[in-house]
Design a protein around this nucleic acid. Structure first.
Lengths: 302, 302
DNA sequence: CGCGATGTTGACATTCATCAACTCGTGTGG
DNA sequence: CCACACGAGTTGATGAATGTCAACATCGCG
C-alpha cells in the first residue's frame, strides 16, 4: 500500500527542498534574513523599504497596493473613499525566495498577507513528506485573509516562485471592514471565489483524467491571470518545475512530464523556460470542460 | 482515454437517478410538488407549514432554526439580541426527497438555504454524466450562504438523503448581517471552515490512497456530527449508497465496496443499514493522519 | 412471485506510480 | 579552461492502484 514513500521523500529532498541561490528580484533591494537549517530553504527576506529607511517615494508606496485594488475591481466598482482606505492600509513589504514558507501550518498569524508579485501556494504536507498544493494564488490575491478569522492555520502558504508580499495587521483589516461594509463583502466574496476554485480542483482530482486535469488548471490560470493583466499575447509566466506541478495536480513528476508531452503533441500548449503559451484556448477549454463563470463573479449589492 | 464513459452513465442512470418512493419523513406532513420527467427525481416537497396554514405552535416554529444557532455557537457565544435576530428570520421550510435538486447549477438564487435535517451535498456534473461531490453538509450548516454573494451557482446542491431545508430571502440575510457585525463574521467564518474542509478533500484526493481517503472522510463526518450532537455512542446515521460514496471520494462503486471491506477487516469501522459505527477512532484517525483542528475554529473578536 | 435497488465478487484493462538511468544546461571550484 | 555536481527534464521497464464489465446475491416491496 505504501511502498516507495521513502523513495518519494528522497526525490523531494533532492528536487524540491534545496535552496535556490538568491537571484535579483524585481524592483527594490532585499537581503536574506535566515535559512532553515533542516530544509535549507530561505525563510524570509525583508525588503529594505519595510525597515523604516524607505527609498521609495510616497507615490510608489501608494501604488504598491495597486494590484490588489485592481483585483477587487474585478468584482465591483470601488468609490473614492474605499480606494483611499485601501491605499492607506499600513503595509509591510517582504520578499520571499522560491519555496520559502510565508505562513506556517499550525501558526496563529497576526497579520494577513496579500500577494503583489509572483505565485504563492497553500500546501498541506503528509507525514511521509509528500505534499499537496490546495490553491495557487496570483498577484492581487488576498492570500491569507483566512487568517483573520481562522484561529489556527490548517495549511502552509509557500512562495511558489519568488514572491513579493504585503503584510497588513489584522487590526487594520478589521478596522477597514468595520468601516466599509461594501469592502467587507468584497473581501468575503474573494474567499468565496477561492472556494469555487477549490471545488473545481476537487472535481478535477476526483473525476478527470490527468490530461484533462492539467488542461483545466491551465485554463483556470490563463483566465485568472488575464483578469489581472498578466497575460501577454496568449502566454504567461509560470515558473513551476514539473515536480511542483505534480504537487498541484496530485500526480507524480514522471506522469506530469508525460501528460505535458501529450498536451504539446496535441498542439494545445507550449511550456518552455518558465513560460506557458496557450496555443488553442478553445480546444483546451473544450477538452477540460472548462467554464470560466465561477471565476467571473460580480457582487450585486453594495 | 475515455472508454467506458457510456457504461458509467448507464450505471448512474440505473443506480442513482431513479426516484425513491416517497417515505414518511420526520415530523410534519409534506407532499410531492413535482417530479422531473427526465430523471424522475422529485424536485421539491413543501412542508404544509410553509403554505400559510401552519399546524405548528409558535414555540416550535422558533425552535425550527435551533440546529443552526447551535452550529453558530460552536464558533462563538451569541448574545440575546443575536439569538433573537436569528430566531426572527423569515423561514420557508421545504422537504426534499433523496436526490432532489435543492439549488440548480447555473441558477441565480434569491434565497439562501440552511439544512435542518438530513445530508445535503454540492455536486458538479461532467458532460458524460459522472459527477463529483465537492462538499457534504450536515444539519445546522448554512448550505447556500454562498449564493448571497456569488452571482451564479457553479455547482448544484442536492439532497444526499431526505432533507429538511429552511430558505431565507437574501434581503433578510443582508439586513441581518448589516445589523449584526458579529453575526456577519460568524457567517463568513462558516464559509471559511467549508473552505478548510475543501482543502482537506483536495489533499485526500491528491495524495491519499483510497483507504486512507475513506478513513479521513469518516473521521471528518464523525467530528462534525459530534459537534452538532448527532453522534450516539460512536455511531451516526449516514444513508449513502456505495455509488454515492464513490461520487464523494472520486472512486468507482466497486472500489468503494472493496475499500470499505478493507476498513471493516481492519476492525476500524462498521457500516450497516445506513448507520456508520466508528469502532476505533484513534486508529482510524492515525491511519488517515486526521487532525480535527481545522474543524474546531473559534472566532477571536466580536 | 417478480422487480428493482443495492451490495458483492472475479476477471481483466487502464491509469498512474515507482525506480533507475540518461541527457542537457548551468554554475562552481580547481 | 575543464571537471564536476546539481537541478531539471526525459525515457523505458515494471508494478501497484484503480476502473470497467459482467455476473450473481440479497433484500424490500408491490
Amino acid at each position: 500500500m505504501r511502498s516507495g514513500h521513502i523513495g518519494v521523500r528522497c526525490d523531494r529532498l533532492q528536487r524540491n527542498l534545496r535552496a535556490r541561490r538568491a537571484s535579483f528580484f524585481g524592483i527594490g533591494f532585499w537581503f536574506n534574513i535566515c535559512e532553515c537549517s533542516e530544509t535549507r530553504r530561505p525563510i524570509a527576506r525583508f525588503w529594505s523599504g519595510s525597515s523604516g529607511r524607505s527609498s521609495r517615494s510616497e507615490a510608489s508606496l501608494a501604488e504598491t497596493i495597486h494590484p490588489f485594488i485592481r483585483a477587487l475591481e474585478q468584482y465591483d466598482v470601488l468609490n473614492e473613499a474605499e480606494r483611499a482606505a485601501l491605499t492607506a492600509l499600513p503595509l509591510q513589504i517582504r520578499i520571499f525566495g522560491k519555496n520559502a514558507e510565508i505562513v506556517r501550518e499550525g501558526s496563529r498569524p497576526t497579520h494577513s498577507c496579500l500577494l503583489l508579485e509572483g505565485f504563492a501556494a497553500r500546501a498541506q504536507v503528509l507525514s511521509d513528506g509528500r505534499r499537496q498544493i490546495t490553491n495557487l494564488h496570483i498577484p492581487g490575491d488576498f492570500v491569507d485573509l483566512h487568517g483573520l478569522l481562522i484561529k489556527r492555520m490548517d495549511h502552509s502558504v509557500i512562495a511558489f516562485v519568488d514572491c513579493k508580499m504585503a503584510f497588513v495587521p489584522h487590526d487594520a483589516v478589521r478596522a477597514l471592514i468595520d468601516e466599509h461594509r461594501h469592502l467587507s463583502r468584497l473581501f468575503w466574496l474573494t474567499t468565496l471565489v477561492d472556494a469555487a476554485i477549490d471545488r473545481a480542483w476537487i472535481t478535477s482530482l476526483g473525476r478527470r483524467p490527468a490530461i484533462d486535469h492539467l488542461a483545466h488548471l491551465l485554463c483556470e490560470l490563463y483566465v485568472r491571470l488575464r483578469g489581472r493583466g498578466l497575460v501577454s499575447g496568449n502566454s504567461f509566466a509560470f515558473g513551476a518545475t514539473q515536480t511542483e506541478l505534480g504537487d498541484v495536480l496530485g500526480m507524480s513528476t514522471v506522469h506530469v512530464n508525460r501528460t505535458l508531452q501529450d498536451l504539446r503533441k496535441l498542439g494545445l500548449v507550449e511550456w518552455e523556460g518558465g513560460r506557458v503559451t496557450i496555443i488553442d484556448f478553445e480546444r483546451l477549454a473544450e477538452r477540460a470542460e472548462f467554464d470560466p463563470a465561477y471565476l467571473n463573479q460580480w457582487i450585486e449589492a453594495r
